[in-house]
C-alpha cells in the first residue's frame, strides 16, 4: 500500500480530534465547549473532507469562524513544566535535544528526494519519526506529547485555519473578476510611452495584487496577462523570461507585507507567541519596499 497525503490528513484529523476531546474535559479552560467544538470541526475536515459535500464543509468553516470571532476559544491546563524544571532538563539532556528537531527535516528531505511520495507526505512521516525520537530520548509517553501539542495549538488558536480560509477568498475574488479591474485601473493611469513607467506598473501591480490575494502565484497570471505582457513585453520588447521571473519576485515583496499571506506572516506570529499579530509584517516592510525598488531597477536594466 502506498502512503498518500490522505493518510497524513487522517493522522492530522485524529490528532485534532484528540485535542478536541481533551479540551472538552479540561475544566480549567473557561471556554472548553467552544474550544472543543472548534478543534472537532477542524478534525472532521481532515478526516472526511473528501466525503462530505463541499457546501457542508463550507458551512462548518463558517461556524468555526463564528466561534473564533465570538472569542469562543480559550486556554486550558497542560501540566507544563516550570522554568527551573526545564533548566534542569536542559542540563540533563544537553545538545541531544536538538536531534529530534533535526529528524523532521531530514526525513522530509529523504522522502522527498528518494521516494515518489512527495515532500508533504515526507513532512508527515518526518513528524512521526521525530515523535518516536523524542519519546525514546525523554522516555515520556504519547499522552504527554499530545498535551504539549495541545498547548502549542491552543496558543496559535484560530490563526491556524486562516491560511486555508484565505485560499477560499482568493478563489472568490477571482470569480468576481477583481484582478481584471485592478489591471485595467493600473494600465489606465500609466504613461505607456515610457518603458520605465510600464516596468514600475508591472512590479508594483504584482506587489499590490499579491497583497490583496495573499499569494503571488494567484496574482501572477492576472497581472502578467493584464499588464506585464501587453505593456512591458509587447509594447517595449522586454525579454519575457527575465521580466516574468523578476515580476514574480516583485510579487514576493508584496507577500512580505500582507496579513492575507497568513501562513507566512500571521501564523508564525501566533506560533512564536508574539503580542502583536502583525509584528512579523512590520519587521518585513523595511526590507520589502527596498527590495521592490531593486526589482524594478533589475527588470529595467536586465530585461531590455
Amino acid at each position: 500500500m502506498k502512503i498518500t497525503l490522505d493518510h497524513m490528513y487522517m493522522v492530522t484529523g485524529l490528532l485534532l480530534m484528540v485535542f478536541a476531546l481533551r479540551s472538552l474535559t479540561d475544566r480549567s479552560n473557561g471556554k472548553r465547549v467552544g474550544t472543543a467544538l472548534f478543534w472537532a470541526l477542524y478534525a472532521v475536515t481532515f478526516l472526511f473532507g473528501n466525503a462530505i459535500p463541499s457546501g457542508i464543509i463550507g458551512a462548518m468553516v463558517v461556524v468555526m469562524a463564528l466561534i473564533a470571532s465570538c472569542k469562543g476559544l480559550g486556554l486550558g491546563f497542560y501540566g507544563e513544566a516550570s522554568k527551573e524544571e526545564k533548566r534542569r532538563q536542559a542540563d540533563r539532556f544537553g545538545n541531544s535535544l536538538f536531534l529530534p528537531t533535526l529528524v523532521i527535516p531530514i526525513v522530509t528531505f529523504l522522502v522527498a528526494k528518494f521516494t515518489s511520495l512527495g515532500a508533504l507526505v515526507g513532512l508527515g512521516l518526518g513528524s512521526i519519526a521525530g515523535l518516536v525520537a523524542v519519546m525514546a530520548l525523554t522516555k515520556d509517553g504519547l499522552g504527554r506529547s499530545i498535551n504539549e501539542g495541545r498547548r502549542l495549538i491552543d496558543a496559535i488558536g484560530w490563526a491556524v485555519i486562516l491560511s486555508q480560509f484565505l485560499a477560499a477568498l482568493g478563489f472568490l475574488f477571482d470569480k468576481a473578476g477583481v484582478g481584471g479591474v485592478i489591471a485595467q485601473m493600473v494600465s489606465s493611469v500609466v504613461p505607456t510611452g515610457s518603458a520605465l513607467a510600464t516596468v514600475v506598473a508591472y512590479c508594483v501591480g504584482m506587489a499590490l495584487f499579491t497583497m490583496i490575494m495573499g499569494n503571488a502565484f494567484a496574482a501572477f497570471a492576472v497581472i502578467t496577462t493584464g499588464i506585464g505582457i501587453p505593456l512591458v513585453v509587447v509594447m517595449h520588447g522586454a525579454n519575457p523570461a527575465i521580466a516574468g521571473v523578476i515580476g514574480m519576485l516583485s510579487g514576493y515583496c508584496g507577500t512580505l507585507m500582507t496579513p492575507m499571506a497568513a501562513n507566512f506572516n500571521v501564523v508564525p506570529a501566533a506560533l512564536l507567541e508574539m503580542g502583536d499579530k502583525n509584528g512579523v509584517i512590520k519587521a518585513q516592510v523595511a526590507t520589502a519596499i527596498p527590495m521592490l525598488c531593486i526589482n524594478i531597477a533589475l527588470m529595467y536594466f536586465l530585461a531590455f
Binding site: T12, A81, G124, L131, V134, T138, E148
Partner: peptide, 12 residues
Amino acid sequence: ILTLPVIGLLER
C-alpha cells in the same frame, strides 16, 4: 500541526 507534539515535548 503534526510537528507540534514533537516540538512541545522537546520544549518541556
